[in-house]
Design a protein around this nucleic acid. Structure first.
Lengths: 374, 374
DNA sequence: TTGTAAGCGTTATCAA
DNA sequence: TTGATAACGCTTACAA
């Protein structure tokens, strides 16, 4: 027996040996020369234990660095903590922060804890986290997927694990999802720009591998083709995913000739990057962004956006999940969060205005002043 | 025995009765007429089980809505998932979102999951969550405290639970903490304003019950008294905690006469609220805010701030916690995150400028135009 | 005041 | 291919 093997080792060796298994109450009991139950009493601060015994046991606990195993405790006590897991891309993106906030809220209302992880857009991490969360025994999962194949989940789905996808749809499996009206929203944004006379409109977005990006690009193309505008590939930039990268990409876009007069930014990261670049270059294009953001109203030219309600997406996703957990069965549900166009100024700059300011700017060639007044 | 009691109930009743205890493998086994171990085999998709048996068991699982208990499983398999808990105020505040992001990152690097909860500044919720998290068996806790008495934690601290406080210090117990240089930072901000000739400077903050607010107010007073400026209570507003409330409070502050020429906003919520109010009222005061924020550089008047590095706070907090978990002992550690003043424009508007614009504005009494040019 | 034995719901071992 | 039994680390019931 292993027990006997341990007995032959000195207590100090047991203390020092970092590799030895975690000490149990049994170990503490042996060390203190009392029964397991007495240790339990001390650990749980039950009364009716003699002070001297308490001291002995506490010493042993200290020496062995004993910590109670909550798993065993909760199993025995019949305590089953409920939790759900959320996998997002990154909390630094306010869209996901708001999404997570709504989910956290719902989890709390339903007496579940929230375990939060960030995939950083890495499919490998997504899978690892899903497996990890399932092993933890979460009741359900909310996923903003980074991967393009979710068949690895199908076995668990059969076994009753509940999964809801957010922002992007599941691939290869049937599952609930809450999505934005990406294509329609993007289309509306670009149509809006076209209605102000623009024909050279940039698309600034994530790589097309991301479903939201691809869908929004489709909306962009829809609007162009309806208006009979030919797509100029040079105006399409889909290599950025951070604010900084978007800023650089915008600078590239600004160099294209004939120059673009408007820009559609595919999410708040791109929009902010684009605005930074435009401000730095002192270029005044019409801009519409996907996703609203806190300070959109307060910029020098308030920003026209397709408001994409992250909070609502999180709320509805959690609602679906908790419905499932409450026993609602049936085929996969799909909910669409509509986008509202909020005109604030940046999207209503006319093509003519832009062209005029471009003309004067070309004259002044390399002058970098903050003042634009003529 | 309860077992017998259950036996007398029909299987269907057992299915329907939502109140009956969760079914176990034993229940499934009985239902399917096989042994417990066979059920285990099916659940774990072990081979070497006859197809007919598998079918029988799966049917029983379906009927009883059986789900494997991960607690028991992990206990038996010796799997102990590690996790830490984080209690913040609210993810919608970008300061906490960045803090949480850094903690999530560190948790991930240390192979721990992160359980995230929001206290919403409610001491009661804080306590509930702490207890809940400890019951879950988290290895450690990172807390942005809402409460003013943490003695309820002392028993657990003795028992080896590791706790690190963030942003606000622990009360009534000794524990590690990572704090901002609140007083010094606020003082620097207000001195900066004073150096531009301001003497009527508003303090816009949270209620004084919040340590950060109280400390930053001390810094505000330090700067005033050093400059020999008498405190005008009417310029101090500490009743807001949301952007919206800050906006309203700012409107109140603007009515004070003689009028203030500058404003110090105690955190990013107050700063944004103040800027909104100022923009709406077309009032041009000097403003310095505590906390940097993403678009501070891009507003019409770029915002001067005391940059308060949320990411660094989260990172260092997690570092302290994982050091403790790795066995570092010793007295409570305290780390200070210094604030850097970043002058961008809003804080460098001189008192004279403000007074001039105020004068012209008083003339034009009630005209609400967007144009300010003279 | 302390200890013994059973059991929480699963998996591992070994036998049938 | 299936099943009986012990064990994971703790708490509960009961006994000493």
């Amino acid at each position: 027996m292993v027990e006997n093997g341990q007995d032959t080792r000195s207590a100090t060796a047991e203390v020092r040996d970092g590799l030895s298994r975690r000490p149990t109450m049994r170990d503490v009991a042996k060390r203190a020369g009392v029964s397991l139950k007495t240790v339990s009493r001390v650990v749980n601060q039950e009364p009716l234990v003699e002070q001297r015994t308490v001291a002995k046991v506490e010493l042993a606990i200290e020496e062995l660095r004993y910590r109670r195993d909550s798993l065993a405790r909760n199993l025995r006590k019949g305590i089953r903590q409920l939790s759900i897991g959320l996998i997002i891309e990154d909390l630094a993106n306010p869209f996901y922060a708001h999404l997570a906030q709504a989910v956290e809220d719902a989890a709390d209302s339903n007496a579940h804890s929230l375990i939060l992880t960030s995939s950083r857009e890495d499919p490998e991490r997504e899978r690892t986290f899903v497996i990890n969360l399932l092993q933890r025994g979460v009741e359900g999962l909310l996923i903003v997927p980074a991967s393009h194949d979710h068949r690895y989940l199908s076995a668990d789905l059969v076994r009753g694990v509940r999964v809801v996808f957010l922002d992007r749809s599941p691939k290869g499996i049937e599952a609930d999802a809450v999505l934005s009206e990406n294509r329609a929203g993007a289309r509306r944004a670009v149509e809006h720009l076209i209605s102000f006379g623009h024909r050279r409109i940039c698309f600034l977005g994530d790589p097309m591998e991301l479903e939201t990006s691809a869908d929004r690009f489709l909306g962009y193309k829809d609007a162009l083709s309806t208006a009979g505008i030919e797509l100029d590939e040079r105006l399409v930039s889909t290599r950025s995913s951070t604010v900084q990268a978007a800023e650089q990409q915008t600078n590239e876009l600004l160099k294209v000739r004939p120059a673009p007069t408007a820009l559609f930014a595919q999410n708040n990261r791109h929009c902010i990057g684009a605005l930074r670049a435009l401000q730095a270059a002192d270029a005044r294009l019409a801009v519409v962004g996907f996703d609203d953001f806190e300070l959109a109203t307060m910029l020098p030219t308030p920003v026209t956006v397709i408001a994409n309600d992250a909070h609502e997406m999180g709320r509805q996703g959690a609602e679906l999940l908790f419905n499932r957990l409450a026993g609602v069965n049936g085929g996969p549900q799909r909910r669409l969060i509509p986008g509202r166009l909020i005109a604030r100024g940046s999207g209503e700059i006319t093509a003519t205005e832009v062209e005029q300011s471009l003309a004067t700017q070309e004259d002044r060639a390399k002058y970098a002043t903050t003042e634009t007044r003529t």
